[in-house]
Each structure stands twice: as structure tokens, then as C-alpha cells.
Design a protein around this nucleic acid. Structure first.
Lengths: 348, 348
DNA sequence: ATGAAAGCGCTAACAT
DNA sequence: ATGTTAGCGCTTTCAT
């Protein structure tokens, strides 16, 4: 591969001039500029971005850490982040952690060595106060947290109002006449899982329904977990008439269990889900849900991060942490339709 | 951030010694080694991988170009590639092209400037002989093509036997008694789309059924395309009794159309799909399909690429191009169950 | 076994 | 306007 030196030699100019032509910093006479440009073409010269990174002390790379790209919510988010990044000439290094803290720590250390300019982070659960996050920030690498924001840490974030969204969703079930409403939560060491549980509880209280700990199943935000929880739950003789599933992957597991056990939905079990599924309307029955703007979350997150980077380069005073909140949307579909049983009850 | 120089100073050794300790190339006396190690700890030194890349002329980064991470097939593939890459200390730069040739060319040029060591490529359609691929290879960047292999180009690849898999799938429909079988293809400038059409035709010929061009709809491997094609197709007065949909995304579109038009499946229209959908069994009806080993395709592709890289570094003679073929699996589910109509017909 | 120094390809400050 | 050169942080060869 040709280097800037070879280009300079061929164009009979100095390397500085070649650099000037490429970065159009200083003015270069038309004659020399033309010579340089044609040398670049002749040699099919592509500047070495690694060398530039070393010199400029910025890689124009962003780390993106998510739990699992297989989850449609995250694939949307990644597309958004990629679009924003590329618009500003940043590249994305994406990693899946499966929500394993040790994997996250390893990735973080790799990203530090690779000298990424900033990190977009969907944080994994951590029992120890998220010290590794603070550490990265202290090293001077800006972080924007997406979807989940670790408690008591000063960091930018882009999220939705999980409490309110869940509350709206469960309220909808209550309005449909349900009184025994269960919930399947993600790991409660995850802030957003806790918030969704909070929203569920608030809706119940608001509806003058007692919170029954026996109706709370903790799983792990994965299909398998939803499946297991649903199996248990449905075997329960005093099972709920409606269920709030706090993410999409678990909902798929629930659906599988419902299917296998021949439980009719919504007649015997109404369902409402946190997160839309791209084909949520294609499932039988179509699933009621609160949808998050996943693409936007990635897009805005990357934008915010890049903005921070620009301010940093300009040596501007770091402004306060930003906590961007995106709106959610309740999508009412058949899985929460008024059930026969309830109709019967209310008639009786 | 601490540099190797600072570590050297603190440990009162030369930078060369620090480097030796880290890379454990030469032997270093236990005494000095201990001093270096503790200096590294004290300064929380993380070697600058950018500088190392420049010196070593290898970035330990791989480019991964796919069409759309939102497609479950690709998210699986990406997970596989990531796992293999990380195992060998490579990082992945992933890009979505939406199958747009100009986007692919741009990404390729970016990857060249970034000096990635190799590229995993799901090639976008191209009408001009895929010259840009050849060019990259000439520049000395190894490529492994995944899923689709551009015709008449000497390049490593990991694929499935699209012709045979499609043929098996369509044969299954024929065995179920169907004679009028339609197909929705992807863009026929895509090698795999063409192969799947070939397989469809071969199955028909083998079953002594004439190939009717009126039963071939060309779409674009996206949900929207499948939806449009299905709408047209189902409005056709002489419509087929069975349909082979040549990828999963389009199948979702087809399902939506079927739903909207109130067409019963499989009674009025049997369905078989190329690609499994993670929740294909949860859809009503569950979809018959040929499943590809997507994760494995990514994993094996990355392995193969890394193997090439190792051979290259060792200045080994480049061996012949490898074309790895992975097995597929026919999964028979309800969407292709024997229909009432056909039963009636065969009885009559 | 250890240190000194060249050089990877680039940018930017400085000299002309 | 153009050329010269130091230096980014590392690895590695060559002395010692």
C-alpha cells in the first residue's frame, strides 16, 4: 500500500504538501494540488488511519456494548447508533455481553486499550456499585448509558420512563377488568427491571389492588426465562387472569408455554408486554405492548456522545450530565382483549 | 493515560524491557520483571493498541459487512463471527448496507483506510461483475464471503447449498400434493436468490410440473417486498395453492398479507420458507422452513479468515480457495400441512 | 540480560 | 506557498 511519502515523491512535493491537500488546512497552489491529486489516483492511495489516530490521539471509533444483538430491541438500537456514528465519520465496535458482568469488564478493558474515543453502554447487572463504570469515566473516556442507567453514577443517558410506561401498560389491564395481574420481571439487579416492577406496583396501588408477592416471578430477560416462569405460573391453581411481561424476549417464551399448555389467550390469560416485537402483530394473538423507540435511542445516544467528544476536543467546560428521556407508546392489540371469563364475572 | 515510557521510568528500566515483559518474547530477570509488573499496576497502564498496530502493521480488526442486522439470520451470524473473532483477540467492525452497492463500496473503502486485517462479506447485488471485490483482494486484504458468493471470483466462502435446500423444500410441497406452486424470490442479481430459484425449478421439473413464469414473483428479501408480492399474488384469480418464500423477512410480509386478506393457511395457501425464524413455531400457523446454520456460518467464516491471516503472516504459500458448505435442515411444520382442498381433489 | 535507537505513517509547528 | 522535521507509543534489531 502506498504511503504519503510515495505520493509526495511521485508528485515531486513534500509530505507536508500532500497532507495539506488531503486535509485542506493550508492553501496549496492549484498546480501542485493537481499533481498531488493525480499521484493519489495513480497510486490509489488510501491514507493510513492508524497512523493518523496515533498522531491525533483520537481513533474516531466508538465502543457499543449491548447484551444481545439477537434481541430485536437491540438490533434496532444498533442500527440507530450506526447511522449517527457514520454520519460523523465514527466507526462502531459492537460487543454482546449476554448481561455477564465479567464479559462487560473484559470488553471495557479491551476498549480502553484500543483507545476508542467514547462508549455507548447498555450496562450489565452489577452487585458492586458499578465501580468499573466510574473508573472508565475517570480515565477520561466519555460514556453514554442506553436503556439502563446505573444508580448514583454521574453519567449521560438516553432512556425511557420505565416506571410510567409500565404503569400505563398495567393500568390498561386493570381497565380491562383484571384484578389478579401477575408480572414476570428481568433480573432485579438491573435498574430498568426494577423500574418496570415499580410501575406495575404503582398501577396496582392506584387501582386499589393489593400487591401480591406470589404474583411476581423473577426471570432474566431471555426467552428461556419467560418460558420457565410461565410454566410455573400457569401450573399455579390460583393463577392470575392477566400477565405483564417486562420484555419482549421473555414474552416469546411465555407464548411458547401458553401454546404448549393449551391455555387460551386472552380468554384464560391476558398478556401485555414491555417492548414491541417487530412481528408482534403477526403472532396469534397479536400482543399488546408498550413500544420503546429503540432506533432513536441508539441514534440519540451516539449523537450525544459525539457532541460530548466535540466539546472535549474544544476544551469546553464539561456541562452537567444529560438524561434524555424518550417517549413510549402503548399499543393495544388482541392479547389484552376483554376476556369471556371476566365478562361473565362482571355480569354475575 | 500512562505510556510505556512512564512505566519504564517508574520501574527504572528501559522501554525495551517493559515491552519484553509484556510480550514475554525475551527472558527478563525475575527482579526486573517484578519491578515492571508493579509499575504497570501502579500506573494502571493499558498498552496503546493503536501504536502497536502502526508498528506491527496489523490492527487485529476484522470488517464484517452484512445487509441488515435486523434480520434474525444476520444477528445470529454476527454472534458467531464475534465469538470466533474474540477467541483469537480480533475485534469486529460491523456495517449494515441494506444491500445497497454504493454503501458497500463506501464501507469497503473505509475499511481499507482503517487497515483492517481481513473482511467478512455478505456481498450486495452488483451488476458490474463485482470488480470492487477483486480490487480489495489485489490490495492484499483477505476476504471471506458469507451466505452469497459472487460468481467467477476466486474468494473463500462459507455458504449452504441453496439449490439443494430449496429443491428439498419445494419437493416437500409437491409431496403434499401441490401442483401450482409459486415462489417469491429476492433480487435476482443476488447469487443466492438465483440459486434458490434454480432449486425451485429443479424440484418442479423433477416432479414433472411445468415451470410457469406467471408463478414467479421477484421481490427484495425484505418484509415490505414479501407483503407487496403476496398482495398481488393473492389477488390473482388463478393463484397457486402453495408458495415457496425465499427468505424469512419476506415470509413475515407474506404472513401479514395473508392475515389481512383473511386467507386461510395452509388450507387455501400452503407456505414454506427459506430460513427459520427464531419464533417460527410461535406464529399461527407455525412455518415450515429450511433452516440455515447462521451462527455457524459466522463462526466458521471468521475462523477461516483468521486462519488465512495466520498463513499470510507466516508467509506461507496461499493455498487454493476454500468453499465451505454447511448443512441445512428441513423443518416441517403446520404451514405446509395437507390442505382440505387438496384432499378433496385427490379424492375426486 | 539489558539498553539505545530506528522507524511504522501521519500531522503540525516551524523555517524558508 | 512549500519544505523540513519532531514526535505520537510502540516493537525490534543491534550493541553492550
Amino acid at each position: 500500500m502506498a504511503t504519503i511519502k510515495e505520493v509526495a515523491r511521485r508528485a515531486r512535493v513534500s509530505v507536508g504538501t500532500v497532507s495539506n491537500v488531503m486535509r485542506s488546512s493550508t492553501t496549496v497552489s492549484p498546480k501542485l494540488r493537481e499533481r498531488v491529486l493525480s499521484a493519489i489516483r495513480d497510486l490509489s492511495y488510501h491514507p493510513d488511519h492508524v497512523a493518523r489516530s496515533l498522531k491525533l490521539r483520537q481513533t474516531m471509533m466508538l465502543g457499543l456494548i449491548i447484551s444481545d444483538i439477537t434481541n430485536p430491541f437491540f438490533s434496532q438500537l444498533v442500527r440507530g447508533a450506526e447511522d449517527a456514528a457514520l454520519e460523523h465519520n465514527y466507526l462502531l465496535l459492537t460487543f454482546n455481553t449476554d448481561d455477564k458482568p465479567e464479559r462487560e469488564k473484559h470488553v471495557l478493558s479491551v476498549l480502553r486499550s484500543r483507545r476508542v474515543d467514547g462508549i455507548l453502554l447498555v450496562v450489565a447487572p452489577d452487585e458492586h456499585g458499578y465501580l468499573h463504570i466510574t473508573q472508565i469515566l475517570e480515565w477520561g473516556i466519555p460514556i453514554v448509558c442506553l436503556d439502563r442507567v446505573p444508580p448514583r453514577i454521574k453519567v449521560d443517558s438516553v432512556t425511557v420512563d420505565n416506571v410510567k410506561a409500565s404503569q400505563d401498560c398495567v393500568r390498561h389491564l386493570i381497565e380491562k377488568g383484571h384484578r389478579r395481574i401477575g408480572i414476570i420481571t428481568g433480573s432485579l439487579s438491573l435498574p430498568n427491571a426494577r423500574q418496570r416492577l415499580r410501575g406495575y406496583e404503582k398501577a396496582l396501588i392506584e387501582g386499589h389492588i393489593g400487591v401480591d408477592r406470589g404474583l411476581v416471578w423473577q426471570a432474566n430477560f431471555r426467552a428461556e426465562g419467560g418460558y420457565q416462569a410461565a410454566k410455573e405460573l400457569l401450573a399455579n391453581p390460583n393463577r392470575p387472569s392477566a400477565l405483564f411481561v417486562s420484555n419482549a424476549m421473555m414474552a416469546l417464551g411465555v407464548l411458547k408455554a401458553v401454546e404448549e399448555l393449551g391455555v387460551r389467550c386472552p380468554e384464560e390469560l391476558a398478556l401485555a408486554v414491555f417492548d414491541d416485537i417487530p412481528l408482534g402483530e403477526l403472532l396469534r394473538p397479536p400482543l399488546t405492548c408498550v413500544a420503546q423507540p429503540a432506533y432513536l435511542m441508539g441514534y440519540r445516544g451516539a449523537e450525544l456522545l459525539i457532541q460530548r467528544l466535540a466539546a472535549k476536543t474544544a476544551k469546553k467546560e464539561a456541562s452537567k450530565c444529560l438524561a434524555v428521556r424518550l417517549p413510549t407508546e402503548l399499543k393495544i392489540r388482541e392479547s389484552s382483549a376483554c376476556s369471556q371469563v371476566l365478562k361473565g364475572r362482571s355480569a354475575g
